[in-house]
Design a binder for these strands. Structure first.
Lengths: 156, 156
DNA sequence: GTCCATGCAAATGATTTGCAGTATC
DNA sequence: GATACTGCAAATCATTTGCATGGAC
């Protein structure tokens, strides 16, 4: 997946921010790995290929900036690292939602596309007056390789 | 809400673990605040009332232990603290699920009871072979006090 | 009495921040 | 040329760990 560089650049400039080699490199590294959920350290390693002098602090600062522009999304799998993936700012409506399936045996993370939660969101607004604008769903279980399709529960 | 001390004690003993004043105090502090999502530091402060000599390290070690026994659940609102709430080990089936509504303006966290995701879980198992055994849902939006019931979107 | 559990203090490790030099506009 | 950005190193801060003592069984 390639980023729409022009849109990203406009987004930066409109906020009075500068378009730097480092910022574009970080964005492109994340866009190049749509299946991965990269940590700051992993992004750092990837970006060093094109930007050998970049510092880890810049990666952290860039990640925060891109996150606030919704160019990337942050995810937390509670393994001690915050992870990042492509955001919705460049995807039109921004209403594409995907959930994460996390295998509690091997740790693998799969993504699953589904908008079933619209129904739940309406229900909540009706019942509580809370207006939902976004959601995050994590499903824990066993992937196929770890016995997902077996019926019996075998827990340690 | 009071904990079922006997069940908790049996759960510990069955694993060859000891029932200590500190462990019971931590469990009761969390059980006493069913509406809160306590951080380790907050639990520490609460427990010091009955256990003035307890150390923060013990609170952390106890929290991990109780978590592994499913006596408490961990939640992460990405604010730099891991939080804890009562778990499902003492609640029969353990199939009670509640979701969190997080206000992106004031940070308030509300809970919402709903089992709508059973449907989604079946769909996923059918489509991917991944067997879901647990899930976590966070919904972000505006609470009533912060304009949740207003229709127009007013974003910065 | 035997281990497990605790308290304290020191260590860890991801992320943040201060500051002087550098690049963008 | 002004100002925002970067790199480096030092700081932060929630959480973990080592070790000697204390408590549960």
């Amino acid at each position: 997946m390639a980023v729409d560089r022009e849109s990203a650049e406009r987004l930066l400039k409109d906020k009075g921010l500068k378009v730097t080699r480092q910022r574009m490199a970080v964005l492109e590294a994340i866009a190049a790995c749509p299946k991965e959920h990269l940590t700051a350290e992993e992004i750092f390693e990837l970006v060093k290929v094109d930007c050998p002098d970049i510092g880890l602090a810049t990666v952290y600062r860039t990640i925060q900036l891109l996150g606030s522009l919704h160019l990337i999304d942050r995810i937390n799998f509670d393994d001690g690292f915050v992870r990042y993936e492509m955001g919705s700012a460049l995807e039109g409506t921004g209403r594409h939602r995907h959930h994460h399936l996390i295998c509690i045996k091997c740790g693998r993370v799969l993504s699953f596309q589904d908008d079933l939660l619209e129904e739940l969101e309406e229900k909540i607004t009706g019942a509580t007056g809370f207006r939902v604008v976004n959601h995050e769903v994590k499903l824990y279980g066993y992937c196929v390789e770890c016995g997902g399709d077996l019926i019996e529960e075998k827990r340690e």
